[in-house]
Design a protein around this nucleic acid. Structure first.
Lengths: 342, 342
DNA sequence: TTAACCTATGCAATCGATTGCGGTTTCGAT
DNA sequence: ATCGAAACCGCAATCGATTGCATAGGTTAA
């Protein structure tokens, strides 16, 4: 193994006592003389003793490790989620084992198996886009294995989940544009098969309706790919035809930045002539010029919340049953320069 | 523990044989009748038996787990590195435990201890900006514990490392600016205790020297934090005093974008009046206006390489000693609009 | 017939730490 | 002097899997 880490036995041998005594001394159990305790602790320190977590896991049937399954690591949102998870896990004394699926269903199955074999105490999961069959999760849930899902959820799974309030985020963003005086607001929508796209579109529509603004179907433009390039080209074309546009709400920041580029290229001032709001608060959003207003879905908080819920479940599952619920995190509007007309 | 995972004992009991037999049958050891093997394997499958990795780790003194210590997870470069590490680890049957230090030295010490207690077989490390004392690593290295450093290295550590060719990257970037006609080139340097900062500075200096351009110490400005804000403020101030600046080479993209913002705010056209080149090719670099020229360092490859080297070391350290060396990955210049004057 | 041998399996120790259950001292009280 | 009770500490089992060694039973050759 390692570099001959000192074990309890080593201490015991050196001090001519039993390992039981060493174990108890280290944990300040009663029934060990102060003298012995002192000697043990001193030697432990000197030998740089570190309890072997593997042995502990085996003995206690608890690994103090949680597994995280995500589609991609290189993704601003997911990496912030991981960061939040890691923070909470660290504080609570848990290790985090990471497994990325690259959006592959088979890899997901594989990850679950590997993590289970590693005796993780629970799982934090955002499944792949391919995943339609949830047996591998439902099997575990039925056996009361702790799992918390985040960001991506399904009605086919009855488990604790953490997601963002897309509807309300989109509503706030649209309402903000309206308050800036906009009435002709384009919505750059995401792929219509994703639940989040639908929710964001609904939020946009509701805000218009509630403010008495007529809905113009032409202003709802789907950008299935969601790249900067795509929305840049789309909006370049569209804004040439429709000179009356005064606001854009994009369902993601990349699309928003593409639209911004198109507007600037057409000589439209942002924000004075066209206000723009994105969604997600990617890292680059604050770095572009003008800085992009956006809806923040704090991956960090999602990660924190999911991790806390999971660890709670792990700690208390023996005391009471678990009632699955869905935690809907508030999305907050982040107003920056790109939408401020006043 | 878990959900009552089936163990070897369960199989043994059900089949009325000893656990030794089950163990051997599962691994096709000789000396077990085909009949028994078949029965064992079938039951194992039916009971969904998965070998307990914790028990195996204890027995074999090998956890098949590697620890990754990084300053930040939410960082384009580091997240790509992690991704590369994870890919290789997965293929080789290793788990990855992640620990982020948030650039805190104490947290780094803590991470090392936690990971060691978890009996990881090796460590992949990029230390914090605060880290000046390397005892905690050198102790381990002396005891032949496998560690591979990446991105950030130090002469105080004699271990296998993977870095990008910062010197050559910086050289290329600076030379590119010179070719665009710049002679008054500011270098926004990183924290001077990081070797990468030094190397980049050296590359900058060498390119100037080789092209017969006098070195002006005033043009070398340290930005220890490396944030956009910092370089924005610094350059705003500096460019007011020095109107003759025509080019900026920043040791990272954030600093470059801050400088770009400052230049634009002062009414200087980028790139025509001031050419700017960054370093690292962060995701946002291609999205800002104008898109930022930068030096690309493939985090994914670095991660892959570091993980391979580490796993090699783990596998072969008993067969032959380890000779530390430094793998230098090539960095390529990515020319975008921000530096193209022609 | 019996020693020699092979096949198939079990025993028990091991990895490191924990813990229920006893077992020795030691000391004070009667 | 004797008894009882603290005060201290050790034995051994346990977690799950592996593995060197032993052994039961059967076969074969001399």
């Amino acid at each position: 193994m390692k570099i001959g880490q000192a074990t309890i036995k080593d201490i015991a041998k050196a001090l001519n006592v039993s390992s039981s005594t060493v174990s108890r001394a280290l944990k300040d159990y009663p029934g060990i003389s102060d003298e012995t305790k002192k000697a043990v602790k001193e030697l432990a320190k000197k030998m740089n003793y570190r309890p072997n977590a593997v042995a502990l896991s085996l003995r206690k049937s608890k690994s103090n490790t949680i597994g995280v399954i995500i589609p991609e690591i290189v993704h601003f949102f997911f990496s912030t989620v991981i960061s939040g998870i890691e923070e909470v896990a660290f504080k609570e004394g848990y290790n985090v084992i990471l497994s990325q699926t690259n959006e592959s269903y088979n890899r997901e199955i594989n990850s679950v198996n590997t993590l289970l074999a590693s005796q993780v105490d629970g799982l934090l999961v955002s499944f792949t886009k391919e995943t339609n069959d949830f047996e591998h999760f439902n099997d575990l849930l039925e056996r009361n294995f702790p799992i918390v899902f985040f960001d991506r959820i399904s009605e086919k799974i009855n488990a604790t989940s953490v997601i963002v309030n897309d509807f309300s985020g989109a509503y706030k963003a649209t309402e903000h544009l309206i308050q800036q005086g906009d009435t002709k607001i384009v919505h750059l929508a995401g792929p219509s098969n994703l639940l989040i796209s639908k929710k964001r579109l609904e939020g946009y529509l509701a805000a218009l309706r509630d403010n008495g603004i007529p809905i113009d179907d032409q202003l709802i433009i789907e950008c299935p790919k969601g790249t900067q390039e795509e929305s840049y080209l789309t909006m370049l074309d569209f804004m040439r035809k429709r000179q009356d546009i005064t606001g854009i709400f994009a369902s993601n920041d990349l699309a928003a930045s593409g639209a911004m580029k198109a507007a600037q290229e057409l000589g439209k001032q942002v924000p004075s002539e066209i206000g723009i709001v994105g969604f997600s608060n990617w890292q680059f959003s604050s770095l572009i010029n003008p800085p992009l207003s956006t809806v923040e879905q704090s991956g960090f908080k999602i990660g924190e919340t999911a991790a806390k819920l999971l660890i709670d479940q792990i700690n208390f599952m023996n005391e009471h049953p678990v009632y699955p619920f869905t935690e809907i995190m508030d999305a907050t509007l982040l107003v920056r320069a790109s939408s401020l007309k006043k």
